[in-house]
Nucleic acid binder design. Structure first.
Lengths: 208, 208
DNA sequence: GTCTATAGGTGGATAGAC
DNA sequence: GTCTATCCACCTATAGAC
């Protein structure tokens, strides 16, 4: 049977898929950054885990700043995709928020912190190129949340006193903070309890 | 005129007050930890700022872990004192919460993050002796907040659907998270806006 | 693309003079 | 209490062989 293209053919005979080395590096760097922070891991940590030398890491990511930037870019893309997937399912505002919270919960259940929440703490020490990506990530989260909240207001499935944009900002900070503290306590249920209250605040009736 | 004691006499002729070296070290270490994190500063940073050598720092704090622990202990004591001072003034629950928020705002206006919120991000990399102090700090904050919230509930100056203890946990995480994000944006007013909403949620009437 | 080898710097920490 | 001098581990990064 003839392969449909040379690209497919090459793939079939390659033991390592294209970019897999870079992907493996990013995977391990992401895990380390989410648990120990950007200043809390080194090329040596990644190299040891992957069974390669530090020098080979520099072939894929010339500097640690480059690696850090790639980390944020990929994380951002994954998050965007996850939000798009939530939007695709035709859920109401409350269920979309629940799905959003479950993204955090998944991260936390792997003993990790949100990558960008983690890096926000280290902001002052980060290479400048990494900083822009951070606030862009938070801005994107706020925009998505504001859209969902505005939708919930229109549909009367959510209720809150201020604007959707303001409430989105409150929600984002609260979830990141709750996540951070839950991780320090090593107790993911602590996050879930707070998140449930935050969502409850948006849907509970104003009058008895 | 005869000094009342040799202790007083010595003090009068001493150019440096007792423990002032240790205090200066703690002051600078605290500033660095609040802006750059525990893993983001070194003995060299402190020594350079104070115009002494690294070796002399080790005389006062044998290891960086010792310094880190002293940092948390002092921060905790200062916070306890601030909360006691708030309680001493006979304010109602809402004003006590406003004063509590203003403690955060003061820290933030110096371009700093709450020391313990900062260290919470680095939790996995911290020397074990430092970890206990962290959660103890958060526990104390939650207890104080829960007390104020319960008081507000009794006085009917505050209103919220769940228990004071649960709401205290929501509030603490939300304030720490808002602080972290505001600092990344370099915008203290961002924190204030969120804090105002969080407090507003607790006092706004449930019915129109 | 991965290796060996190494450069050049900084980390926390200690010994011993003053 | 502070200094000089030093240790050794670790850091990011590069050169050049394979």
């Amino acid at each position: 049977m003839k392969p449909r293209s040379t690209i497919d053919e090459r793939s079939a005979y390659r033991t390592t898929i294209p970019g897999s080395a870079a992907t493996a590096i990013l995977d391990e760097a992401e895990r380390l950054a989410q648990t120990r922070g950007y200043n809390g891991f080194s090329y040596a940590d990644i190299a040891a885990r992957l069974g390669v030398t530090k020098a080979s890491l520099h072939y894929h990511f010339r500097s640690k700043a480059d690696l850090g930037r790639a980390l944020i870019d990929r994380y951002r893309a994954g998050f965007d995709a996850a939000l798009t997937e939530i939007d695709r399912q035709g859920l109401d505002a409350r269920d979309r928020l629940r799905r959003y919270v479950s993204l955090y919960q998944t991260v936390l259940s792997n003993d990790r912190m949100c990558l960008c929440g983690m890096l926000a703490a280290e902001y002052a020490t980060l290479p400048v190129p990494m900083r822009k990506g951070l606030t862009a990530f938070f801005d994107a989260n706020e925009r998505w949340l504001a859209g969902v909240l505005a939708d919930g207001l229109r549909q009367r499935t959510l209720r809150f006193p201020d604007s959707a944009a303001r409430r989105a900002r409150v929600l984002l900070g609260s979830l990141e903070g709750a996540m951070m503290l839950a991780r320090a306590y090593g107790d993911a249920s602590r996050f879930q309890a707070v998140a449930d209250r935050l969502l409850g605040d948006l849907s509970s009736p104003k009058s008895a």
